Amino acid sequence: MINDESLKEQYYKALLERNSKYDGIFFAGITTTGVFCHATCPARKPKYENCNFYETAEEALLSGFRPCKRCCPMSYPKEISPLVHQMIHLVEEHPEKRWKDADFSELGFHAATARRQFKKIYGMTFVQYARARKMGIALKSIRTGEKIINAQIDVGYDSSSGFRDAFSNIMGKAPVNSQKVIILYASWIDTKLGPMVSIVDEEFLYLLEFVDRRGLEREVEQMRNKLNASIIPGETKISKQIENELKNYFNNKLKKFETPIIFFGSDFQKSVWNELLKIEIGKTTSYKELATLLNNPKSVRAVGNANGANQLSIIVPCHRVIQSDGKLGGYGGGLERKKWLLHHEKNYKK
């Protein structure tokens, strides 16, 4: 989401004027209707405070907005093929669906053709679009704290089944007379680097990730399946604690994260994550140095994989691990965020 006030004002002015020069430059998410639009949308213009602005359609989708039916923002440029039109329509009809090559064949076209056409127009694959739409549905409910039925109506489904299935495929079905199902609570946290989602119970933080992290959907599904858990929108003292600590962290006021956490992974992964917790703010280490600390100098690649599997972003500071030559290396939240975090911590005032 774009947070620069001057840029937001510029985009809002373009939205009011229906300035065609800005079509494809930004997408406006309208919080009162739950849709996202192009600059030239003919619908009645919203108030400034009800607008969020995004650089890509994927960001708008992940924030829980659906394409506006008036301006059809996913139909830009206008010369998109009937095939792509059909694919977008199918996602809206079945947001819960997991698309496979065989599904495209049944529709009478080749999967590779569909992927190529979609990627060319939108800069993301059709599967990315479908996943972002489904994930956005789940995240919208978390972000707003609405009851499922209210959120279902808001996103525009005539039947609750599509919304319910899309949500439950990620977060788990609501428990029905079962004492073995664990209930976890998910909440939305706005930060200077973009929104994050936390998943907690009454005692521990299980997951903290940026909502646009690649693979977040898979992380959540794997966690709830392993724990036999259902995840519902809500807050506990733990989610409130981590939200407050993150606020202090971004304002240079936090000495140490105190939120109780719990690890889910192999013994080796846990050993890597525990070493990460020892890296002080403002300091960095390398994958090779981590492997040496674990008395296994040849495990550099395994250390990198464990680093990437970390589900507690910022708290378990995998962003403080760089390559031996000083290059940043990878980061699940994106290299720009890693660069920002390291710069922020370098100038951190304890």
Rank of each mutant, 00 (worst) to 15 (best):
Ile2Arg: 04
Ser6Trp: 11
Lys8Cys: 13
Tyr11Lys: 00
Lys13Ile: 11
Arg18Gly: 07
Tyr22Pro: 01
Tyr22Gln: 11
Thr31Lys: 07
Thr31Asn: 08
Cys37His: 12
Pro46Arg: 02
Lys47Trp: 10
Asn50Thr: 12
Thr56Leu: 02
Gly64Tyr: 04
Cys68Pro: 01
Lys69Met: 09
Lys69Asp: 14
Arg70Leu: 14
Lys78Ser: 15
Pro82Cys: 08
Met87Gln: 05
His94Thr: 11
Lys97Met: 13
Trp99Ser: 05
Lys100Thr: 15
Phe104Arg: 01
Ala111Arg: 06
Ala111Met: 03
Ala112Tyr: 01
Arg115Pro: 00
Arg116Glu: 14
Ile121Lys: 08
Gly123Ser: 00
Gly123Cys: 05
Met124Gln: 07
Arg131Trp: 04
Arg133Cys: 02
Leu139Met: 14
Lys147His: 15
Lys147Leu: 07
Ala151Pro: 02
Gly162Ala: 15
Asp165Ile: 06
Asp165Asn: 13
Phe167His: 10
Gln179Met: 10
Ile183Pro: 03
Ala186Gly: 14
Ala186Glu: 01
Thr191Cys: 06
Gly194Leu: 07
Gly194Trp: 04
Ile199Ala: 04
Ile199Glu: 03
Asp201Ile: 05
Phe204Glu: 08
Leu205Glu: 01
Tyr206Phe: 12
Tyr206Met: 04
Tyr206Asn: 04
Leu207Asp: 02
Glu209His: 12
Leu216Asp: 02
Glu217Thr: 11
Arg218His: 11
Arg218Met: 08
Glu219Asp: 12
Glu221Tyr: 09
Gln222Arg: 14
Gln222Thr: 12
Gln222Asn: 14
Asn228Met: 11
Ala229Gly: 02
Ala229Phe: 03
Ser230Ile: 03
Ile231Lys: 02
Ile232Cys: 06
Glu235Trp: 08
Glu235Ser: 13
Thr236Arg: 02
Ser239Lys: 04
Asn244Gln: 12
Tyr249Arg: 05
Phe250Trp: 12
Asn251Ala: 15
Asn252Val: 10
Lys255Arg: 14
Lys255Gln: 15
Thr259Gln: 07
Pro260Gln: 07
Ile262Lys: 10
Phe263Ser: 06
Phe268Cys: 07
Phe268Gly: 02
Gln269Phe: 02
Leu276Gly: 00
Glu280Ala: 14
Lys288Val: 10
Leu290Tyr: 04
Leu293Gly: 00
Leu294Tyr: 09
Asn295Asp: 15
Pro297His: 12
Ala306Arg: 04
Gly308Gln: 10
Asn310Lys: 05
Leu312Gln: 03
Ser313Lys: 05
Val316Thr: 10
Cys318Met: 01
Ser324Tyr: 09
Asp325Trp: 12
Lys327Gly: 14
Gly329Ile: 08
Tyr331Met: 06
Gly333Ala: 15
Gly334Asn: 04
Lys338Trp: 05
